[in-house]
Nucleic acid binder design. Structure first.
Length: 322
DNA sequence: AAGGAGATCAACCGCCGTATT
DNA sequence: AAATACGGCGGTTGATCTCCT
């Protein structure tokens, strides 16, 4: 059926870069009235723009809760991992980086991360090592291949971890309904290695979260650390230079290990009986998660590798040759 | 200093899904 | 059920900036 462009009918509408005056008009109007219907907003706000242009300007630039500037390593890591899981679903990825816009993330991916992954010998679309990357002779190509494999595996583990956190969050919510509220978690040290949300933010989101994996994963939940920590074993370094191949993979693993260690310390402090009881349950749960990851990754149209996750030990780094 | 090449990013375009009539 | 309106999304463009020769 199709739909005509929103501004086709109205001639004389302005295009191109926004002036400070236009920004001011839009800001003032939205602050006073909210955006309401975008189509009718420009006329009400005295702007000669189409509603779509106004919406874009607001969501990508004028919104007060936008963080601008350089992406942090953690943000980069989050984007790469989520891209491995979600593909080019920038808005979905942006929900995990609440102060970044999908447009900004998309631009950053296209201009920075895609190229960097390509340099590492990783196909930025599939997140798999490129066929030619492993075929080349020499130790360095082998190292790149292994780094790329680690990257894919890390993404798979992150997927499993998100699922597990979602489940634990749901359970915690159920428990909370049946018992007085637990004391708040420590102010630091338990953040998800891939989330930029603080726990306070997470709590806010948890209330309003959709009933989906990503929404639920925002809820404060501490994953029983053992399997996760086992999965990564000792910390492993790929290199110090950001320009060297393997750097990102190293960052991913370092952050993942750091997260696992933080969780382990926190959980050890509790040393609760509950944890022991849950351990067995978690083991079974992790098996199902791994099955789920394996099946979804091999069948999904998303870009992740179809290599099966069979054993956490496979994430232990190979001989240090980087 | 000039100009060409590449990088960056704001903004546009067209399509899609959903709500409404 | 079909047509239409709307918001949202992802891909792409083009103006501007930065770096290099």
């Amino acid at each position: 059926m199709g739909r005509s462009p929103c501004c086709e009918k109205e001639a004389g509408l302005k295009k191109g870069p926004w002036t400070p005056e236009e920004d001011q008009k839009l800001l003032v109007f939205i602050e006073q009235h909210g955006h309401g219907c975008w189509r009718s907003l420009p006329a009400k706000a005295g702007l000669r723009r189409c509603g779509k242009s106004c919406r874009l300007r607001w969501t990508n630039y004028l919104r007060p809760d936008i963080k601008r500037g350089k992406f942090t390593l953690q943000e980069e890591q989050t984007i790469i991992q989520l891209h491995a899981l979600l593909g080019n679903r920038w808005s979905a990825i942006a929900t995990h980086l609440p102060k970044r816009t999908d447009n900004e993330i998309k631009n950053y991916w296209n201009t920075h991360l895609k190229k960097r992954l390509a340099k590492m010998g990783i196909d930025p679309v599939t997140h798999k090592p490129r066929a030619d990357a492993g075929a080349g002779a020499g130790a360095s190509s082998g190292a790149r291949y292994r780094a790329a494999a680690h990257l894919s595996h890390t993404a798979q583990w992150e997927s499993a971890r998100l699922e597990a956190e979602a489940r634990l969050a749901r359970e915690a919510k159920l428990r909370a309904l049946a018992s007085p509220p637990a004391p708040p978690p420590p102010a630091s040290g338990l953040e998800s290695p891939t989330s930029t949300l603080s726990f306070s933010e997470s709590a806010l989101f948890a209330g309003a979260a959709h009933d989906d994996v990503h929404g639920a994963a925002r809820a404060p939940a501490v994953l029983t650390p053992h399997s996760y920590a086992e999965a990564f074993g000792e910390q492993h370094r790929f290199g110090d230079d950001a320009a060297t191949p393997g750097f990102l993979a190293g960052v991913l693993l370092d952050c993942a290990v750091a997260g696992a260690e933080q969780r382990f310390v926190a959980a050890s402090a509790d040393a609760s009986v509950l944890e022991q009881q849950q351990e067995e349950e978690d083991r079974g749960y992790w098996s199902s998660i791994l099955n789920m990851v394996n099946s979804s990754m091999s069948s999904s149209s998303s870009s992740l590798t179809s290599e099966a996750v069979t054993d956490p030990a496979m994430y232990l780094p190979a001989a240090a040759e980087f």
